[in-house]
Computed example of a mutant assay.
Amino acid sequence: MSLAADTRAAVQARPFVFDALRAGLLNHSAAAAWLVEAAALDGDPDAVAAALRRFREDLPAYATASRGATVSMRSGVGLSTADDAAEGDAAEPLLRVGDAAVVPEGDRTAIVATGDVDATALADALRRLAVRDVDVAAAGVAGDALVCVVGRRDGPDAVRVVEASLDAVPATEPA
Protein backbone atom coordinates (compact mmCIF):
# COMPACT_ATOMS: atom_id res chain seq x y z
CA MET A 1 0.00 0.00 0.00
CA SER A 2 1.08 3.57 -0.57
CA LEU A 3 1.79 6.01 2.26
CA ALA A 4 -1.36 7.92 1.30
CA ALA A 5 -3.47 4.74 1.57
CA ASP A 6 -1.82 3.81 4.86
CA THR A 7 -2.50 7.31 6.19
CA ARG A 8 -6.17 7.13 5.19
CA ALA A 9 -6.51 3.72 6.84
CA ALA A 10 -4.85 5.00 10.03
CA VAL A 11 -7.22 7.99 10.15
CA GLN A 12 -10.30 5.86 9.47
CA ALA A 13 -9.26 3.51 12.29
CA ARG A 14 -9.32 6.48 14.69
CA PRO A 15 -12.75 8.18 14.47
CA PHE A 16 -11.69 11.17 16.59
CA VAL A 17 -8.92 11.99 14.09
CA PHE A 18 -11.32 11.48 11.18
CA ASP A 19 -13.90 13.84 12.74
CA ALA A 20 -11.28 16.51 13.46
CA LEU A 21 -9.90 16.22 9.93
CA ARG A 22 -13.39 16.50 8.43
CA ALA A 23 -14.20 19.50 10.63
CA GLY A 24 -10.98 21.26 9.63
CA LEU A 25 -9.74 21.32 13.22
CA LEU A 26 -6.71 19.10 12.82
CA ASN A 27 -3.15 20.36 13.05
CA HIS A 28 -1.80 18.30 10.16
CA SER A 29 1.84 18.37 11.31
CA ALA A 30 1.05 17.35 14.89
CA ALA A 31 -1.40 14.67 13.74
CA ALA A 32 1.15 13.32 11.24
CA ALA A 33 3.84 13.03 13.90
CA TRP A 34 1.38 11.29 16.20
CA LEU A 35 0.16 8.90 13.47
CA VAL A 36 3.72 7.95 12.48
CA GLU A 37 4.22 6.77 16.06
CA ALA A 38 0.73 5.55 17.06
CA ALA A 39 -0.11 3.80 13.79
CA ALA A 40 3.49 2.86 13.03
CA LEU A 41 3.28 4.52 9.62
CA ASP A 42 6.42 3.95 7.61
CA GLY A 43 7.01 7.46 6.36
CA ASP A 44 8.27 10.91 7.07
CA PRO A 45 5.87 13.06 9.18
CA ASP A 46 5.97 15.76 6.48
CA ALA A 47 4.83 13.26 3.85
CA VAL A 48 2.07 12.02 6.18
CA ALA A 49 0.97 15.63 6.77
CA ALA A 50 0.74 16.12 3.00
CA ALA A 51 -1.32 12.93 2.73
CA LEU A 52 -3.63 14.24 5.46
CA ARG A 53 -4.13 17.51 3.55
CA ARG A 54 -5.00 15.61 0.36
CA PHE A 55 -7.35 13.30 2.27
CA ARG A 56 -9.10 16.34 3.80
CA GLU A 57 -9.74 17.74 0.33
CA ASP A 58 -11.64 14.54 -0.59
CA LEU A 59 -13.88 14.60 2.49
CA PRO A 60 -17.26 16.29 2.75
CA ALA A 61 -17.43 19.09 5.30
CA TYR A 62 -18.40 18.12 8.83
CA ALA A 63 -22.09 18.79 9.38
CA THR A 64 -24.79 18.02 11.91
CA ALA A 65 -28.54 17.68 11.65
CA SER A 66 -31.32 18.04 14.19
CA ARG A 67 -33.50 14.98 14.74
CA GLY A 68 -37.19 15.17 15.56
CA ALA A 69 -37.52 13.06 18.68
CA THR A 70 -39.17 13.24 22.07
CA VAL A 71 -36.98 12.40 25.06
CA SER A 72 -38.38 11.11 28.34
CA MET A 73 -37.06 9.58 31.53
CA ARG A 74 -38.38 6.42 33.17
CA SER A 75 -37.22 5.82 36.72
CA GLY A 76 -37.20 2.47 38.44
CA VAL A 77 -35.91 0.20 35.70
CA GLY A 78 -33.43 -2.60 36.12
CA LEU A 79 -31.35 -5.09 34.21
CA SER A 80 -32.32 -8.73 34.27
CA THR A 81 -31.82 -11.93 32.35
CA ALA A 82 -34.54 -12.78 29.86
CA ASP A 83 -35.63 -15.71 32.07
CA ASP A 84 -36.02 -13.45 35.13
CA ALA A 85 -37.96 -10.91 33.05
CA ALA A 86 -40.40 -13.60 31.90
CA GLU A 87 -41.09 -14.65 35.51
CA GLY A 88 -41.67 -11.11 36.79
CA ASP A 89 -44.06 -8.39 35.72
CA ALA A 90 -46.11 -8.98 32.59
CA ALA A 91 -44.96 -5.62 31.18
CA GLU A 92 -42.74 -5.77 28.12
CA PRO A 93 -39.07 -4.94 28.61
CA LEU A 94 -37.92 -1.57 27.23
CA LEU A 95 -34.93 -3.25 25.62
CA ARG A 96 -33.84 -6.82 25.10
CA VAL A 97 -30.45 -7.94 23.80
CA GLY A 98 -29.70 -11.64 23.86
CA ASP A 99 -30.46 -12.93 27.37
CA ALA A 100 -30.46 -9.47 28.98
CA ALA A 101 -33.46 -7.19 29.32
CA VAL A 102 -34.30 -3.77 30.72
CA VAL A 103 -37.28 -4.45 32.98
CA PRO A 104 -39.71 -2.10 34.75
CA GLU A 105 -38.40 -2.82 38.26
CA GLY A 106 -35.02 -1.70 39.55
CA ASP A 107 -32.84 1.13 40.74
CA ARG A 108 -31.80 2.64 37.39
CA THR A 109 -33.25 5.21 35.01
CA ALA A 110 -34.00 4.73 31.31
CA ILE A 111 -33.70 7.63 28.90
CA VAL A 112 -36.08 6.94 26.03
CA ALA A 113 -36.12 8.92 22.79
CA THR A 114 -38.83 8.24 20.24
CA GLY A 115 -38.96 9.62 16.74
CA ASP A 116 -36.22 10.14 14.17
CA VAL A 117 -33.49 8.05 15.81
CA ASP A 118 -30.96 5.58 14.48
CA ALA A 119 -27.60 4.03 15.29
CA THR A 120 -25.77 7.27 14.44
CA ALA A 121 -27.91 9.18 16.96
CA LEU A 122 -27.26 6.49 19.59
CA ALA A 123 -23.50 6.53 18.94
CA ASP A 124 -23.39 10.31 19.35
CA ALA A 125 -25.48 10.18 22.54
CA LEU A 126 -23.21 7.48 24.01
CA ARG A 127 -20.09 9.45 23.10
CA ARG A 128 -21.48 12.58 24.79
CA LEU A 129 -22.56 10.62 27.86
CA ALA A 130 -19.05 9.14 28.14
CA VAL A 131 -17.51 12.63 27.97
CA ARG A 132 -19.78 13.65 30.87
CA ASP A 133 -18.70 10.52 32.84
CA VAL A 134 -22.21 9.09 32.80
CA ASP A 135 -21.99 5.30 33.08
CA VAL A 136 -24.39 3.62 30.64
CA ALA A 137 -25.47 0.16 31.79
CA ALA A 138 -27.39 -0.70 28.61
CA ALA A 139 -28.29 1.00 25.35
CA GLY A 140 -29.97 0.21 22.08
CA VAL A 141 -31.95 1.51 19.16
CA ALA A 142 -34.60 -0.13 17.02
CA GLY A 143 -37.29 1.34 14.85
CA ASP A 144 -38.19 4.75 16.21
CA ALA A 145 -36.96 4.16 19.78
CA LEU A 146 -33.60 4.78 21.43
CA VAL A 147 -32.91 3.67 25.02
CA CYS A 148 -30.00 4.44 27.36
CA VAL A 149 -30.03 3.03 30.89
CA VAL A 150 -28.09 5.01 33.50
CA GLY A 151 -27.85 5.25 37.27
CA ARG A 152 -30.77 6.95 38.99
CA ARG A 153 -28.75 10.06 39.94
CA ASP A 154 -27.50 10.48 36.37
CA GLY A 155 -31.02 10.52 34.91
CA PRO A 156 -31.68 14.29 34.71
CA ASP A 157 -28.22 15.05 33.31
CA ALA A 158 -28.53 12.17 30.84
CA VAL A 159 -31.85 13.54 29.55
CA ARG A 160 -30.21 16.90 28.82
CA VAL A 161 -27.25 15.20 27.13
CA VAL A 162 -29.46 13.01 24.92
CA GLU A 163 -31.66 16.00 24.00
CA ALA A 164 -28.57 18.02 23.06
CA SER A 165 -27.15 15.16 21.03
CA LEU A 166 -30.40 14.82 19.06
CA ASP A 167 -30.23 18.54 18.24
CA ALA A 168 -26.85 18.06 16.49
CA VAL A 169 -26.31 14.49 15.28
CA PRO A 170 -23.25 14.26 13.00
CA ALA A 171 -24.30 13.80 9.38
CA THR A 172 -22.89 10.57 8.03
CA GLU A 173 -21.18 10.97 4.70
CA PRO A 174 -19.16 8.24 3.03
CA ALA A 175 -15.42 8.82 3.00
Results as ranks from 00 to 15, higher is better:
19 D>Q: 13
19 D>S: 08
19 D>R: 02
20 A>C: 04
20 A>L: 10
20 A>N: 05
21 L>M: 06
21 L>C: 07
21 L>A: 03
22 R>C: 07
22 R>P: 14
22 R>W: 08
22 R>D: 09
23 A>P: 06
24 G>H: 11
24 G>A: 07
25 L>D: 14
26 L>Q: 05
26 L>K: 02
27 N>Q: 09
27 N>V: 15
27 N>Y: 00
28 H>V: 03
28 H>F: 13
28 H>A: 15
29 S>E: 12
29 S>Y: 01
29 S>A: 14
29 S>T: 06
29 S>I: 03
30 A>N: 05
30 A>Q: 10
31 A>V: 03
32 A>S: 07
33 A>Q: 14
33 A>L: 06
33 A>M: 07
33 A>D: 13
33 A>T: 15
33 A>H: 14
33 A>G: 15
34 W>G: 01
34 W>C: 00
34 W>A: 11
35 L>Y: 04
35 L>M: 03
36 V>D: 00
36 V>Y: 01
37 E>R: 13
37 E>Q: 12
38 A>M: 09
38 A>G: 02
38 A>D: 12
39 A>R: 11
40 A>P: 09
40 A>T: 06
40 A>S: 12
41 L>G: 02
41 L>K: 00
41 L>R: 00
43 G>T: 03
43 G>L: 03
43 G>N: 04
43 G>P: 06
44 D>V: 01
44 D>S: 10
44 D>K: 01
45 P>M: 06
45 P>S: 05
45 P>Y: 13
45 P>L: 07
46 D>I: 00
46 D>Q: 10
46 D>M: 04
47 A>V: 12
47 A>K: 03
48 V>L: 07
49 A>S: 11
49 A>T: 05
50 A>N: 10
50 A>S: 10
50 A>T: 15
50 A>Y: 00
51 A>C: 14
51 A>N: 10
51 A>S: 14
52 L>A: 09
52 L>M: 07
53 R>V: 12
53 R>K: 10
53 R>I: 07
54 R>K: 10
54 R>Y: 04
54 R>V: 03
54 R>M: 02
55 F>W: 13
56 R>I: 00
57 E>A: 13
57 E>R: 14
57 E>K: 12
57 E>P: 01
58 D>P: 04
59 L>T: 01
59 L>I: 01
60 P>A: 14
61 A>Y: 11
63 A>Y: 01
63 A>G: 11
65 A>E: 13
66 S>E: 15
66 S>V: 11
66 S>G: 07
67 R>Q: 09
67 R>P: 09
67 R>S: 03
67 R>V: 01
67 R>L: 05
67 R>H: 09
68 G>N: 11
68 G>C: 03
68 G>H: 08
70 T>V: 13
70 T>L: 06
71 V>E: 01
71 V>K: 05
72 S>G: 13
73 M>I: 01
73 M>V: 07
74 R>W: 04
74 R>C: 06
75 S>Y: 15
75 S>M: 08
75 S>K: 08
76 G>T: 02
76 G>N: 08
76 G>D: 06
76 G>I: 04
77 V>L: 08
78 G>D: 09
78 G>E: 09
81 T>G: 15
82 A>V: 11
82 A>W: 04
82 A>Q: 09
82 A>S: 14
83 D>R: 11
83 D>N: 05
83 D>S: 12
83 D>Y: 09
